[in-house]
């Protein structure tokens, strides 16, 4: 029984790590008023660039660097479109995802040929002595790869630095609630929005790299398969606050891990039902049926001075 619990906790956290990373950036971005539906595309591009970079250089660390650069490029595209050109954020987000899917699939055909599977250098698990022997928590938290530990650190730093009590966090909220007033107070509205979108690009790309380099050690078409959308949903389910968002990520990860652990626990649950659960939960959270919820006022509203 406890072996099953260990496995469930470890699986849940393992599946939650990419979500935590991507949603840490996405949370700030949405609070600043930019709905990055393109998280999925940033993540997929990051996964591809990570695998390609690691394969070409023979070093997983170089792969991570390539992933972040690629994620930033996608994020820059999203930022130019939604902040400078004030294009519709939903259209551009969905289309960037389609572009990333088409682009990585196309490039994988040319570069990886029939997969290149298994030959991509990646990150191996580095168990922390002593701590890993703690029941349930040990296998869940202290058997990550180097990139996994880095993911925890990045998530924690962003949660603290972007909290509502810091200058940065306040600026982000001000820009996302009332951009005109923020502008009149001297806050650089566009710079803040560019910053958070680029940040989301970086964290999402790291999340993609984590999938490609720590988990599967290869790249396959549509590797992320909707995990990026799930990260956006986690932010909504977390009602635009850091702790609930992290809990939502863990919950989503565990719901997915339950698919694999259910037979051992003697439960019969429909796997598609478990996959759908996060979205139902987010719907309940956002509709105010579970606690109160209010989206940032300026979410998806572009800013233009002088209106």
């Amino acid at each position: 029984m406890s072996a099953v619990l260990d496995e469930l906790a470890a699986g849940g956290v393992r599946l939650a790590v990419p979500l935590l990373l991507a949603s840490a950036g996405e949370l700030l971005s949405e609070r600043a008023g930019v709905l990055n539906l393109s998280v999925e595309g940033m993540m997929l591009t990051g996964a591809f660039a990570g695998a390609a970079g690691a394969l070409a250089s023979g070093s997983a660390v170089v792969g991570v660097g390539a992933a972040v650069v690629a994620g930033l490029v996608v994020a820059l595209l999203q930022a130019v479109l939604s902040v400078t050109l004030r294009a519709d954020q939903i259209v551009t987000g969905i289309t960037i995802n389609a572009l990333a899917l088409g682009g990585t699939t196309y490039a994988a055909r040319l570069w990886f040929g029939d997969g290149g599977a298994g030959s991509v250098p990646g990150f191996d698990p580095l168990p922390v002595p002593v701590l890993r022997d703690i029941p349930v928590l040990g296998p869940a938290l202290f058997q990550q790869s180097a990139l996994g530990y880095a993911a925890f650190a990045v998530t924690a730093v962003l949660a603290v630095a972007g909290a509502r009590r810091t200058t940065w966090g306040l600026a982000v909220d001000a820009v996302g609630e009332d951009a005109t007033t923020a502008d009149r107070c001297g806050l650089p509205v566009r710079a803040v929005r560019y910053g958070v979108v680029l940040l989301t690009g970086a964290t999402s790309a790291l999340a993609g790299a984590q999938l490609a380099l720590s988990e599967v050690h290869s790249f396959s078409d549509n590797l992320t398969a909707g995990v990026g959308y799930l990260a956006v949903v986690a932010v909504i389910a977390g009602r635009w606050r850091a702790w609930p968002t992290m809990l939502a990520c863990l919950f989503f990860g565990t719901a997915q891990a339950l698919q694999f652990a259910a037979p051992a626990l003697g439960l019969h649950v429909s796997a598609p039902l478990l996959t759908t659960l996060p979205y139902v939960f987010a719907l309940l959270a956002v509709s105010g049926l579970v606690g109160r919820s209010r989206a940032p006022s300026a979410l998806t509203v572009p800013f233009v001075r002088g209106t």
Partner: peptide
């Protein structure tokens, strides 16, 4: 076939931009 997906996305992004 993914190249058509790329072409379509580029077209949509250009129009949106």
């Amino acid at each position: 076939a993914s190249s058509v997906q790329i072409v379509q996305s580029v077209l949509v992004l250009l129009i949106a931009a």
